[in-house]
Design a protein around this nucleic acid. Sequence first.
DNA 1: ACCTGAACACCGTTCAAGT
DNA 2: ACCTGAACACCGTTCAAGT
Lengths: 224, 224
Amino acid sequence: VRTEPVSRRTGGAKAPLSRQAVVDVAMRVMREDGLAKVTMRRIAAELDTGPASLYVYVSGVAELHGAMVDELLAGLPLPLPLPARESWRAATVDVLVRLTTILYAEPSLALSVVSLRPSGPRYLALIDWLLQSLRRGEVPVREAAWGVDVLLQLAVATAAEQGLRDQAGDAAGDEAPLAEAIAAADPGARPGLAWARDELLSGEGLQRLRWAFGTLLDGIASAA
Amino acid sequence: VRTEPVSRRTGGAKAPLSRQAVVDVAMRVMREDGLAKVTMRRIAAELDTGPASLYVYVSGVAELHGAMVDELLAGLPLPLPLPARESWRAATVDVLVRLTTILYAEPSLALSVVSLRPSGPRYLALIDWLLQSLRRGEVPVREAAWGVDVLLQLAVATAAEQGLRDQAGDAAGDEAPLAEAIAAADPGARPGLAWARDELLSGEGLQRLRWAFGTLLDGIASAA
DNA sequence: ACCTGAACACCGTTCAAGT
DNA sequence: ACCTGAACACCGTTCAAGT
């Protein structure tokens, strides 16, 4: 008697390959084992095939990451309602915080966004909403356009940085080396550090995030 | 007759290994062939040894990247002179632009800084200078501390993003997909994009960078 | 303590050959 | 057109053994 090869996923019925299937498996592997394990070979193995087969659907690992980012943005409910004229600032901060939170859950993917600049429909919709919101706040068009760029950059970078630090903290036992170095700095040689020591590490992540977005928005709104 | 093994670098005299030698070779390989080629195996080969030998001096590839960042910051002349009270804003923008420019030259290393948060002495000196400068501008201590964090994040993210995009543009023939997507968007469905279309891609990199730092500083200075 | 050979357990991508 | 086996050209890290 011989047993047929059996899919380790479904226990038999081998689903047909497709771009969506590749992206789906990639998302699942990322959530289960992290982005580092999202390799062409691992995805192929999960789909009971060889890595070469995936190249029919994605051009390579970089393009796959892009598709995964767009998938992640589905967590942001769109279309967003446009804010009332007087609450545009709070609403904008809110959307940016939500975006950061979504990316924060997958910091290694957020890091790839820093260099990727997604161009999928969901990302476009987000940019569009931000521009309309700033327009409601009577921000001039140039300041709005340049400002949205900076706001998004800050959201992405913060998510990548904070998230990866949390992961590193989980793994390694030691504290953040920057915090240690600040605490150990000579107050005479580093008067700025001595002055701000207590505030450099104060506040909660979310509180600082809201402050950062609000502060940047204030700068943008008054830059006319 | 037998020929002795010959160093491919020096043609004979094999320099002793050291942490500095490892970092130096890593920096050279990065400048010549990019960060992707800075592998333990490649560095070992350049030093005429096996990869295992490097683990005496660096704990792994992550720590090596950290050391390389500190090396890169040597391009920022320190100590920086503290600005006059009335020119603190311009001086701060200047230092941040210089930092971004240095990182921009090695965008893939800048990208690793997003997650790394360097803690070397040069980075500490930079934070100290920024804090002192903001103090001269009479920025309250909490706003200064939180603000410096955001300013540095923006510098690093911008360097990584812009630099990597430039590299990608060199390699692939096609234009930035985001620019194409913006141009192709339906004005009725995306009124914000239609409104800001011309300004989203306007301006030069340096001009936008100065604007971003200045705008953020204004927000920070008025956030009291 | 420093250094090494060899191995372990992986990668992304290409390509000729099959269906 | 889609799929595959096999190969090519690599990775980081560990470890027992040497000096």
